[in-house]
Amino acid sequence: MDTDEGRKLIRVVQTCSACPSQWDAWTVGGQYLYLRYRHGLGCVEWHTGPEVEADTAESWNGGLSGLLVEWDDGTGGGDISLEDFLAVAGLELAPGASVS
C-alpha cells in the first residue's frame, strides 16, 4: 500500500458511535480499512472489504487482512471523535472526502 494513498481517506462511514467507536473507511487508493477504539485501545486494520470476517485465521494468515497501526492511550475510554482518532492513527481525510 502506497504510504500517501494508504493514509488519506476518501470515504468514512461511522458504524458505531461509542463503546466501541468504529468506522468503515476507504483510502484514495481503494483500500478498505476498519477503524476501532475501545477501552482506550485504538487500531486500524486493512481487509479486502467490509464483508471479510476480520477475526478468522484464514483472513489473517491468508494475507487478506492485516494490522496497520494500534495504540493504547491509557484512558480506558470507549468513545473518540473521528478527528482525534485520525490524528493518533496518522491518517487524514482527503480533500472532498465523504464522512457519514
Score class of each variant (00 low, 15 high):
46 W>R: 08
36 R>A: 09
29 G>Y: 11
46 W>V: 06
94 A>D: 03
92 E>I: 02
67 L>E: 02
23 W>Q: 01
17 S>C: 13
33 L>R: 04
72 D>S: 02
50 P>D: 13
20 P>S: 12
16 C>V: 07
32 Y>F: 15
71 W>T: 05
48 T>Y: 11
73 D>G: 01
27 T>H: 08
35 L>H: 14
41 L>A: 12
44 V>E: 07
39 H>L: 11
22 Q>C: 11
96 G>F: 04
65 S>M: 07
25 A>E: 09
56 T>N: 14
40 G>E: 07
98 S>H: 06
34 Y>P: 04
91 L>F: 01
17 S>N: 15
78 G>I: 03
95 P>T: 03
40 G>D: 03
51 E>V: 04
42 G>R: 14
51 E>T: 11
50 P>T: 11
92 E>W: 00
54 A>I: 05
25 A>T: 08
35 L>C: 05
58 E>A: 07
76 G>S: 08
48 T>Q: 15
52 V>R: 11
71 W>A: 14
96 G>K: 03
21 S>D: 07
98 S>W: 06
51 E>H: 10
80 I>C: 10
96 G>A: 00
98 S>E: 09
75 T>H: 10
94 A>C: 03
64 L>Q: 15
56 T>L: 05
22 Q>K: 10
28 V>K: 06
27 T>N: 09
31 Q>F: 08
76 G>E: 00
31 Q>T: 02
49 G>Q: 04
62 G>T: 09
86 L>M: 02
88 V>P: 03
53 E>W: 13
66 G>K: 00
51 E>R: 14
43 C>T: 10
76 G>F: 06
41 L>M: 13
42 G>V: 13
64 L>V: 06
81 S>Y: 01
16 C>S: 15
55 D>S: 14
95 P>K: 01
74 G>A: 09
19 C>N: 05
19 C>S: 03
54 A>Q: 07
57 A>M: 07
63 G>C: 08
29 G>R: 05
42 G>K: 12
63 G>E: 10
84 D>V: 01
42 G>A: 06
79 D>F: 15
31 Q>L: 08
37 Y>E: 09
